[in-house]
Amino acid sequence: MTHYSLEDHAQATSALAQIKEKWENYSGNNPNKFRAAMESAKARLLTISTELKAAGLLERNPAEERDALLDAEFPAARSKDVVTWEGRRFMKRFSPAATSLSGKTVIAWNTYWEELVE
C-alpha cells in the first residue's frame, strides 16, 4: 500500500513543469536560478513514481519490470554487484537523479540493472 495517489503524481509532474517553464522564461544572469527547486521537484516526482509503480498504480516499462524482478530476487544487491539471473549476467547500477545546488550531494538516486554482454 502506498501513501501516494495518482493525484500526487499529477501535482508533482505539474510542479516540475512549472519550474522548468519559469527557468525557460528567465532572462536573468543567474545560471543557478530555480535549480534547487527543480532538483527537489525531480526527487519528489521520482519518489512518487517509484512508489506508485511498485504498488501497480502506474505502468512499468519492460526494463523497469525486469529491474523489479531482479530487485525482488536480489534485495541485498549493492552498487556494481554482479548476479546471474535466467542465464544472463546483470550489474546493479546507481546514478544521481537529483543533486544539491553544489552538485556534491545526491538528493535522490536512480537504480537500475545493466545487462553484461560478454
Rank of each mutant, 00 (worst) to 15 (best):
T105N: 15
N29D: 15
T84S: 12
D67G: 05
V83A: 00
M91H: 02
E64T: 03
R44K: 08
F34Y: 14
L58R: 03
G28C: 01
A97F: 15
L116A: 04
R78L: 10
V117Q: 11
S27I: 02
N110H: 09
Y26Q: 06
M91R: 06
E51W: 09
S14C: 00
H9S: 04
E73G: 10
K92W: 07
T105W: 08
N29M: 15
A41Y: 01
K42Q: 08
F90P: 00
S5Y: 13
A76G: 03
D8Q: 11
L6H: 02
Q18Y: 10
K92S: 11
D81P: 00
E59I: 14
I19M: 04
A17M: 03
D8G: 05
D8V: 10
K42H: 10
F90H: 03
L57S: 05
W113G: 10
D71E: 11
R60L: 11
P62C: 14
N29L: 09
Y4V: 06
A98M: 03
Y112H: 12
S40T: 07
T47R: 07
V117Y: 15
T13P: 02
N32F: 14
E39M: 12
Q11N: 08
I48Y: 03
A76H: 10
W113V: 02
A37V: 10
L6R: 03
L116M: 06
T111D: 11
I107D: 10
E115A: 06
L58A: 01
A98R: 00
E73D: 11
K33Q: 10
R78M: 13
A98C: 00
S14V: 07
E64R: 00
R89I: 01
S40I: 13
G56E: 04
P75T: 06
Q11R: 09
H3Y: 11
L46W: 15
R60F: 08
G28I: 00
R88G: 06
R60E: 08
W85T: 01
E65D: 15
E59C: 14
T84H: 15
W23P: 01
E59T: 10
S40A: 15
A37R: 07
I107V: 14
T99E: 14
L57I: 06
A77W: 05
R93E: 03
S27T: 04
E115T: 04
L58T: 09
S5L: 12
E73R: 08
R44F: 10
Q18I: 09
N61F: 04
R66F: 15
A55S: 15
E51Y: 15
P62N: 13
T99N: 11
G28K: 01
A98Q: 02
A41H: 00
S95R: 00
V106D: 14
A12K: 04
T111C: 04
E39F: 08
Q18C: 04
W23D: 06
A17K: 11
E118T: 07
G56A: 02
K80V: 07
W85G: 07
N25G: 02
N30F: 02
K20G: 12
T50L: 04
L57C: 00
Y112R: 04
W23S: 10
L16I: 13
R93Q: 12
W23H: 12
T13D: 13
W109E: 02
A77Q: 02
T99L: 14
A37S: 12
Y112I: 02
A15F: 09
T47G: 09
S5C: 05
V117H: 15
Q11H: 07
Q18R: 09
F94R: 11
S40G: 13
